[in-house]
């Protein structure tokens, strides 16, 4: 099933890529190929890859005709968790500049640790606060990597 989805995605992607390539304006001076030639080769490569995948799918189905790749029950629950983590991470990145690194990171870490390291409040709070403040100090002041300060004065 997954392979069929991948196959469809490759074909759609190749179509979009060919279309986007056609939109590139070309001024082919001193360069016989211009900016479109290499991308066109990649588009053709994608279609060849789709063909290779089809061949592999056909070979696999010939090898094992009766195995139905059933997903283990309850697997989708883990996907919900990963989906939740992704949304929480997107929110963290959304407020990264506005709230500042220290505040945003502390909140982000606290929530994730509360879920994945349940019940250990003292360890979680101490780690989240100390790590956010410590890493900010180290990167911002010692290593010269500028991080957003947000609400905080420093």
């Amino acid at each position: 099933m997954a392979d069929r989805v991948i196959f469809a995605c490759i074909v759609i992607l190749a179509g979009i890529y060919f279309y986007a390539t056609a939109q590139i304006p070309s001024l082919e001076i001193g360069d016989p190929l211009g900016p479109k030639a290499f991308p066109r080769l990649l588009g053709i490569g994608l279609l060849v890859t789709a063909g290779m995948l089809l061949l592999e799918m056909w070979r696999e189905s010939a090898n094992k005709s009766d195995t139905s790749g059933q997903e283990p029950k309850g697997d989708h629950v883990h996907l919900y968790v990963i989906g939740g983590v992704s949304i929480w991470t997107a929110l963290y990145f959304l407020v990264f500049e506005r709230f500042g690194y220290v505040v945003a990171s502390t909140l982000y870490l606290l929530a994730l640790m509360a879920y994945f390291n349940r019940g250990k409040w003292i360890a979680n709070v101490t780690t989240a606060v100390l790590f956010a403040v410590g890493s900010y100090g180290m990167f911002n002041y010692l290593l010269g990597v500028s991080l957003p300060k947000g609400f905080l004065p420093y």
């Binding site: 982000y108 870490l109 994730l112 640790m113 879920y115 994945f116 390291n117 349940r118 250990k120 360890a123 979680n124 780690t127 790590f131």
Partner: peptide
């Protein structure tokens, strides 16, 4: 604990 490590 991995629950601390991964968020970091």
């Amino acid at each position: 604990p991995a629950g601390i490590l991964y968020p970091l």
